[in-house]
Write a protein that binds this DNA or RNA. Sequence first.
DNA 1: TTATCAACAACAAACGTTTGCACAACCGTT
DNA 2: AACGGTTGTGCAAACGTTTGTTGTTGATAA
Lengths: 329, 329
Amino acid sequence: MKRVTIKDIAKYLNINPSTVSRALRNHSDVSSQLKEQVTQLANKLGYKPNYAAINLRKGKSNTIGLIIPEISTYFAPSVIRAVEDITHDMGYNLLILQSNDSVEREIQNVEICAQLGVEGILISLTKESTDLEHFSELAHLDTKIVFFDKTLHEEYWNKVTIPDKKATTDAVVYLTRMGKGKKIAGIFGDERLSITQDRLAAYKDTLAELKFKYQENKIQFASNALAAEQSFMRLWKSDSKPQLLFIMSDEILEGVAKAIYKLKINVPDEIKIVALSDGYLPSILSFKVPYIQTSGFSIGLKAAQTLFDLIKGKTIEHKKQYIDTPLVK
Amino acid sequence: MKRVTIKDIAKYLNINPSTVSRALRNHSDVSSQLKEQVTQLANKLGYKPNYAAINLRKGKSNTIGLIIPEISTYFAPSVIRAVEDITHDMGYNLLILQSNDSVEREIQNVEICAQLGVEGILISLTKESTDLEHFSELAHLDTKIVFFDKTLHEEYWNKVTIPDKKATTDAVVYLTRMGKGKKIAGIFGDERLSITQDRLAAYKDTLAELKFKYQENKIQFASNALAAEQSFMRLWKSDSKPQLLFIMSDEILEGVAKAIYKLKINVPDEIKIVALSDGYLPSILSFKVPYIQTSGFSIGLKAAQTLFDLIKGKTIEHKKQYIDTPLVK
DNA sequence: TTATCAACAACAAACGTTTGCACAACCGTT
DNA sequence: AACGGTTGTGCAAACGTTTGTTGTTGATAA
């Protein structure tokens, strides 16, 4: 069945398409009587505006793109949920692209966004991304961009991230309070990520500041849950077991939890843990893990809001924005 | 900066836009020499096709829509991942819409898809959806539709679902083998969902067939994790504790797990559990839960493949397709 | 009465592509 | 020399909207 167009309606009523268009858009140039007629007929015929035509005519797409490294269990779903909410409220459409942690695919995705003429992009970088070259082109096309979560250190683009330093410091302070003079360890994510470096630096700085003794060999890196499980096993089997443990992310926490189950360790009696987490995982563990909440939903919300502010031409006060990271016991 | 168009290229080379178009699309009508020239210039100027124009001209959108009740922790992420993969491979774009478990919003989302002229829709229904009225319109516009996971019983549309009967039966058979004559209980999801009814029916039928004694009051319904937790508490505090437990879904399993932690129950010594699950949750519990895998990824994959088959005009052999549901111990 | 102004509606161009058709130039056959 | 067949290119229309401009009314004010 052919779609009903404005032209059809116009022909039917013996008026001009432009008048129909104006009538439907409630333009003041059209008599209310005619408006009534037009809208009624449009409803009756089941008229649906053709967005391709509208976009072409208006030179905009009413769509924003969301590019994420991977739609994994943690984080991504809550980000998507938040972004979808805002996007829907703004009457925009959401295009989701997944980079599968490959820069190549990331560039490809940016390209796709450019081709489709999205009005804005929300992007979290892959582990491998080291420069933002491929985004400069978009700036020319005045496509707005907001980076969130995984970003690089530079000053040009708008960003919404977790305050890594503050979050880590808060976690470490809380953790160390639980046992003065106890042995502390930390398990971190992929060493290449700037997020890992930031959290690691804050971890060390805080301990130094607190004059809390720690050993370099009690710092581990693990790029996925399995690696984290093994890391923890190593730590636990060493001659000096840690009594306090800092965990950088949900992925790491997952691995550690598995190890803890296997080793039948009693938390918090044998070891006290603090993590940075979205909050879901701690809620389904058999032991209590206090955590600093790094909420994907909050990040998604703020990032999307910022993007729409940009699209609507508002100026953003701070290039770099942080979300709240409350301590949840 | 203005976008470079085919016209610009044409003007630059003093040829006709149509020739440029043909050259870029590698049409045999154009001399390879000219093709070379055109593509080079296009690259140099950074030409990006305008999809709004292409879509308008071709009357199609190169986009499919994915409508889901809610982007929750279980299931949805893996579905999205699978669908995104296939969609990308097919050179299509993916529009994600979330119904927040409201029929109203679901209808709205379908409407949006229709307006944007998506070529196909993948949809999982909300709890409240009782008829498919709002989809008939799409059929007229020859938009292809594939229902997945949460569907209704009818014969008209294409569907990809979990074989609820088989999955449940397998689970129950496995569960009952673990203890003849023991007391069995089952916790199910929202009573309104057809998926719940199907699994419940299979549960009862299987037990009847096995001549396994069960009590009606040992069947509970819980529409979310918290309710499931309470359901399990009730069961456990009753005078006759169940020794075997069937769990219909991840959501339920989450609640039960929390209850088990709180009550410090020893699994599988005190109670043996079998669940229907995507697999992630069982992997991070402190106790082992055998489960029938109802993989979101598989469903997403098959649903997306089916949709593209429909779009490409292939005929689908079976209106109703099922995914594999292996037992994982 | 005429000039002025609003209110209403039509006209036509434009957005960037694609595509059926026409046409010119060239080739080799009769 | 006339014919038919390729090959390469241009022309123009079309997809469905929106919007600046123009034109027609009828009413109001001078």
